[in-house]
């Protein structure tokens, strides 16, 4: 009998580790049929609801669809990102995370995998929203550059909120709790200029609605898609997104480390 005491295995590169975890999360996305259906159906239903049910009352000229499209894009992106909280929480409560942590790899890449998969899922969902919007009469006078800039804003928004939801998934104890906390954040778009201009709200609510992250992002998208000047909302949107993204990155890294030493 030969007794081995020296380790022979090599560690995978940083790129391989990330590629493996991204592949894993993409497979999960494709196999989670219920949430995939939800991600595709929700944008379509919301678009039809706001255009044909509420639209007539909100704007009798039939122009509401042009107002509401940026709002629905962000609502769907936010909803799509929120499932990251549940995915991350599920991984953290399952024994598999202990195995990753005891391997000579950067275990935090598990989270990177979930984030990239969310980005891919939600960019696809955004494309569906825009296609449906064009079918129900959305008209854009934006240039190609304007469309590209709008897409850039959406991608940054998805990335920001996905990392935020990933942090929520890391700090909550269970997938159910993660889903609950994530749900609260999904109310933010309703308290913004997504569906109605903020000056139609009571003045105490305007204070909140005008100074929360969703409103400048919505206004930026609206200006880019209608080909009007972006103004102050452009840098406000960038500042909000980059700020939240940075805090979420720090928060998730700290939460991941703390979880490791607690049990």
């Amino acid at each position: 009998m030969k007794t081995a005491l020296t380790a022979t295995a090599k560690s995978p590169s940083f790129l391989t580790t990330n590629a493996v975890f991204i592949g894993r999360s993409l497979r999960h996305s494709l196999r989670n049929v219920e949430s995939l259906m939800m991600a595709i159906m929700l944008p379509i239903l919301l678009m039809l609801l706001f255009t044909y049910v509420f639209g007539g009352a909100l704007d009798p000229t039939g122009n509401y669809v042009n107002y509401v499209v940026p709002g629905i894009i962000l609502l769907c992106a936010g909803f799509g990102s929120s499932s990251t909280a549940v995915d991350v929480a599920t991984d953290m409560t399952n024994g598999i995370i202990d195995r990753f942590r005891t391997m000579p790899i950067r275990a935090m890449s598990v989270i990177t995998g979930h984030v990239v998969a969310s980005l891919v899922r939600n960019v696809l969902a955004t494309c569906i929203v825009i296609s449906v919007a064009l079918l129900v009469g959305f008209e854009s006078s934006a240039s190609f550059g304007g469309w590209l800039a709008a897409l850039g804003v959406v991608v940054l928004f998805i990335l920001t909120f996905t990392w935020l939801f990933a942090s929520i998934g890391l700090v909550t104890g269970s997938p159910a709790a993660a889903s609950g906390y994530g749900f609260i954040l999904l109310f933010l778009p309703y308290l913004s200029s997504a569906f109605v201009p903020t000056n139609t709200m009571p003045s105490w609510m305007q204070g909140f609605a005008n100074h929360q992250p969703i409103t400048p992002v919505i206004e930026t998208m609206r200006a880019l898609l209608s080909g009007t000047p972006v103004g102050d909302s452009g840098w406000q949107a960038l500042l909000w997104c980059c700020g939240i993204l940075l805090l979420s990155l720090l928060w998730s890294a700290a939460a991941f480390r703390r979880k490791a030493g607690r049990r």
């Binding site: 989670n32 598999i96 790899i105």
Partner: peptide, 25 residues
């Protein structure tokens, strides 16, 4: 090998092994 079988339930047995092989270099 922890107290609760640390396998990825969404992946097949073979995919689980292949993933862990890749992560082992």
């Amino acid at each position: 090998t922890g107290q609760f079988a640390a396998v990825d339930e969404m992946l097949t047995g073979e995919e689980n092994l292949r993933m862990m092989c890749r992560l082992s270099g």
